[in-house]
Design a protein around this nucleic acid. Structure first.
Lengths: 150, 150
DNA sequence: GTGATTGCAAACCTTTTGCACGCCA
DNA sequence: TGGCGTGCAAAAGGTTTGCAATCAC
């Protein structure tokens, strides 16, 4: 079962590479697989560590650049932070983000209403949309309890 | 008219400072005013230049730190970029963002449907939300025409 | 007076760039 | 074989931190 899912993903990956004129290298394969197995919002460094479990000699730069490349073709998503290192979103399902300004954690949440909201025609007509996401910012439960400035 | 609006804002600012135990310094006043007059998504450097028109000796650090402080108390909003410098949102009206992955520009757009979409109860109950915004990513009209990888 | 804030400078970290070598197509 | 991709290294750029002097309360 898992194997069959994996081979489906492999085929999808191969297709993506072909469509975007990217070569299929062992490094990219490894990074792609690590992306499938990762959870949450890892940094490039997190991903690099994960990939190195099976590919010890891969360089950080390759991981970093590959993740950026993947984000450009829609295989992953760059999550915006508050100035820290980039984070990559590994959750392929539709979901939305709540950012805590205090502890900087990012919480996923789901909302069918938000998923289904239409993109305004003026934008949709002119642009090629790769992702749509609601971003909430504020203080999480813990941080608002500790807040001094509020 | 403009003056009366200005004094309203001043009162609001004063109140915000009091509520958050922030001292009212000339620098913060100047930055706050520049924020009201700014448009789009300026960087800290943009803001610093603007503030220096009337406050030539202010340091970049002060502007930078103050903008971060202001974002923490909801006076402005930090816009997430794709790795470039932080940008601050000066548009106080509800609006949403489209990011072009190609040219990195950020386009504002409005959508009443998106404004009015409710925050899921599980989040709203536990967190203090400061802002809500839909983020679209993709390639703008110009960039999708020039895209090589797609 | 006291603690927050400012300004200057250095340190830190992430991202970007350059280049030679190696590998995929 | 021709390029693209990788790895290493250095540079660039933005952000954060430390500290002494100053200012608001």
């Amino acid at each position: 079962m898992k194997l069959s899912l994996r081979s489906e993903w492999f085929a999808a990956f191969k297709e993506k590479c072909r469509a975007h004129h990217l070569k299929m290298t062992p490094q990219r394969m490894a990074i792609y697989q690590a992306l499938l197995e990762a959870e949450g919002h890892p940094t490039a460094e997190d991903m690099c560590n994960a990939v190195r479990d099976e590919f010890p000699n891969i360089s950080f730069d390759t991981v970093y650049r590959t993740l950026v490349t993947f984000s450009e073709i829609g295989l992953t998503d760059i999550v915006a932070g508050h100035g820290g290192p980039r984070r990559f979103d590994t959750n392929p399902d539709n979901h939305h983000h709540f950012y805590c300004i205090g502890c900087r954690r990012i919480f996923d949440f789901e909302s069918e209403a938000m998923d289904q909201i239409p993109i305004p025609a003026e934008i949709d007509r002119k642009c090629r949309i790769l992702s749509k996401r609601m971003i909430l910012k504020g203080y999480c439960h813990k941080c608002s309890a500790q807040q001094k400035k509020f």
